[in-house]
């Protein structure tokens, strides 16, 4: 019998004994959602061991995948077992996708690392539901750290990284890159900044821009009250230089979280975010179902209709 057709509990057992096919299958089932995904979530949740969840985001072409690939090369040397969730957008027209992060990690990623490509699959809530489930599978199977890589252009993509234990924001040298990152809301979530392609002209200008923005957020009181200030790391991911400094900075952030008790806070917030999204999705389905059987009299006020429908959902 193929691994692929095992029931969820046997799949989880196979995955935990190191069967990569089973891990791959669990990720597929979690991503599809529904009752089977919920069953897997129920099975894996008690097994999680607190893997450090690292989000990496930045503009397209910033070098996130190459940086991620380089991290997965050095982490096993430290005795760590990284897994990567690489998120790329789906085509809004067809729902299909071309997921190319493995190409960009090719030749730099460690051989034993587990990489999974994920498409955003259109509907905004999809990613918010599937990513925590996939992270939980990785954690339950024993991977640590779990790296989530997204393009920092959509709100959900940014939120998913922001909900990680440590969020790394990658920018490039060049006038305005830091400004763009700021506009995209990336600076607010950053725990570590990386200026990748630091061998290019303008790297120091970009560092100065970032420092300035951090100063401003300090003055406006947005900075962490514990005094944590995101470090700025210079890298050239294509040849690996500076990459170990990135991991050192991630570790330092983790130490800060541990020392201040903020890790538990973050994880509670993440759980709340996940539960909120699940409730949102469940209610959304019930709203649709309720509306499907509801007679929308055009002569009545929308406010009155809404009140009725809420009543139907609450009763059901």
């Amino acid at each position: 019998m193929s691994v692929r057709s095992l029931p969820p509990d046997e799949l989880v057992d196979a995955a935990r004994s190191g069967n990569r096919r089973a891990i791959g299958r669990l990720l597929t089932l979690v991503e599809r959602g529904g009752a089977v995904a919920d069953a897997i979530t129920d099975l894996t949740h008690p097994l999680i061991g607190g893997a450090h969840v690292v989000g990496i985001t930045g503009a397209p072409g910033a070098g996130k995948s190459t940086l991620t690939g380089q991290l997965t090369r050095i982490l096993p040397e430290m005795g760590l077992t990284p897994a990567v969730l690489a998120v790329d957008p789906s085509s809004p027209l067809s729902g299909g996708a071309i997921l190319g992060d493995r190409v960009r990690m090719d030749g730099v990623a460690g051989e034993e690392v587990f990489i999974r490509s994920v498409a955003t699959r259109g509907h905004a809530g999809g990613l918010a539901l599937s990513v925590p489930g996939a992270v939980r599978v990785f954690d339950a199977v024993g991977f640590d750290p779990v790296i989530i890589e997204t393009v920092g252009v959509g709100q959900v993509e940014v939120d998913v990284v922001g909900a990680a234990d440590t969020a790394v924001v990658v920018v490039n040298p060049g006038w305005g890159d830091a400004v763009q990152a700021n506009k995209a809301g990336l600076l607010e979530v950053a725990d570590v900044f990386v200026i990748n392609k630091a061998d290019r002209p303008g790297a120091n200008d970009t560092r100065r821009d970032l420092e300035l923005m951090l100063d401003l957020s300090h003055m406006s009181g947005q900075e962490d009250e514990s005094g944590y200030r995101p470090p700025i790391i210079m890298t050239t991911a294509t040849d690996g230089s500076g990459v170990s400094n990135v991991w050192d900075a991630v570790q330092a952030h983790r130490a800060h979280l541990d020392a201040t008790g903020k890790l538990a806070e973050r994880r509670a917030a993440r759980l709340r975010y996940e539960v909120a999204n699940r409730v949102d999705a469940a209610l959304g389905a019930r709203i649709t179902a309720a509306l499907d059987g509801y007679d929308l009299d055009p002569d009545r006020s929308p406010a009155a209709h809404a009140e009725n429908v809420v009543g139907l959902i609450t009763l059901s």
Binding site: S90, G96, S117
Partner: peptide, 11 residues
């Protein structure tokens, strides 16, 4: 992709 399929491109 345009037929709604997810392609994992290895290059």
């Amino acid at each position: 992709r345009d037929a709604g399929i997810e392609v994992i491109y290895l290059g």
